[in-house]
C-alpha cells in the first residue's frame, strides 16, 4: 500500500529534522544556481557597458509583447505553485493536483512562446555564428549580445524543462497519496526551485528586452 510508506528516512530522528535538512539543502542548491547564472550576468554586464548602443540595437529585435506576456505567464505560474504548496499544507489533494497542473501548463506555455521567439531569430539570421547577418555595422559585438541572449534564455529554458519534469513527478506522487499535511516536503522544494526560475526571468526580461526603448 502506497499510503503506508513511511516518509521518514532511516538516518533522521524526526520528520521535522528531515524537513529542515531538505529545506537547507534546497537553499544551498539555489545558491549554486545564483552563482551559475551569475557568471552569465557578469559577462552580460561587461559587454553591455562596453557596447551600449549595439546592445540597445540588438534588444530592439526582441519582441517586447512576447517577453512581457511570458513574464506574466511565469508570475501566474509562481502564484499557482504557491497555491499548490498551500493546498498540500492543508491536505487538499484534488486542489494540489489542479494547481500543479496549471503550473505545468503555464510553464509549457512559456516554453512554447520561447520556441516562437527562437524560430523568429533563426529566420532573421540573428543566431550567432556563420549564418549571422547584421546590416547595422560591425557584426562582431551584436553577436555577443545574441550569444548572451541565447545562453541566458537557453539555460533558463533548460531549467523550465527540468521544472516541468519535476511537476509531473509531483503530480504522480500526489495522485498516489504520498503527501499529507505532515509530509509534503517535495512539493515545497520544487516550489522553491520554480520560484527561483521565475526570479531569473524577472531579471532577464528588463535586461534583454527593454534596453534603450525610450
Amino acid at each position: 500500500m502506497a499510503e503506508s510508506r513511511n516518509p521518514l528516512a532511516h538516518h533522521f530522528d524526526s520528520l521535522e529534522q528531515q524537513y529542515a535538512a531538505a529545506k537547507l539543502g534546497m537553499w544551498s542548491f539555489l545558491i549554486t544556481e545564483v552563482m551559475m547564472f551569475g557568471g552569465l550576468f557578469l559577462g552580460y554586464i561587461l559587454y553591455r557597458c562596453r557596447f551600449p548602443e549595439v546592445f540597445a540595437q540588438g534588444s530592439h529585435h526582441l519582441d517586447i509583447k512576447l517577453g512581457a506576456f511570458n513574464t506574466a505567464v511565469l508570475i501566474v505560474s509562481s502564484l499557482t505553485m504557491a497555491l499548490a504548496v498551500h493546498a498540500a499544507q492543508e491536505g487538499r489533494k484534488q486542489a494540489t493536483l489542479t494547481y500543479l497542473f496549471f503550473t505545468l501548463m503555464l510553464g509549457l506555455t512559456f516554453l512554447g512562446v520561447k520556441v516562437i521567439e527562437y524560430s523568429d531569430k533563426y529566420q532573421h539570421h540573428l543566431i550567432p555564428g556563420a549564418r549571422f547577418l547584421w546590416s547595422e555595422g560591425d557584426a562582431g559585438p551584436p553577436q555577443l549580445f545574441y550569444s548572451y541572449y541565447f545562453c541566458m534564455t537557453g539555460l533558463h529554458a533548460i531549467h523550465m524543462v527540468v521544472g516541468a519534469g519535476l511537476l509531473l513527478w509531483l503530480m504522480a506522487l500526489t495522485a498516489r497519496n504520498r503527501f499529507s499535511p505532515a509530509y509534503y516536503t517535495p512539493i515545497e522544494m520544487v516550489g522553491l526551485y520554480w520560484h527561483f526560475v521565475d526570479i531569473v526571468w524577472i531579471f532577464l526580461f528588463p535586461l534583454l528586452y527593454l534596453i534603450g526603448r525610450h
Binding site: G43, Y47, R50, F51, P128, G129, A130, D138, G140, P141, Q143, L144, Y146, S147, Y148, F150, C151
Partner: peptide
C-alpha cells in the same frame, strides 16, 4: 563558434 570570449567579435 559563437562569440563569448572571442576578441575578434569584441
Amino acid at each position: 563558434g559563437i562569440g563569448i570570449f572571442d576578441p575578434a567579435l569584441g
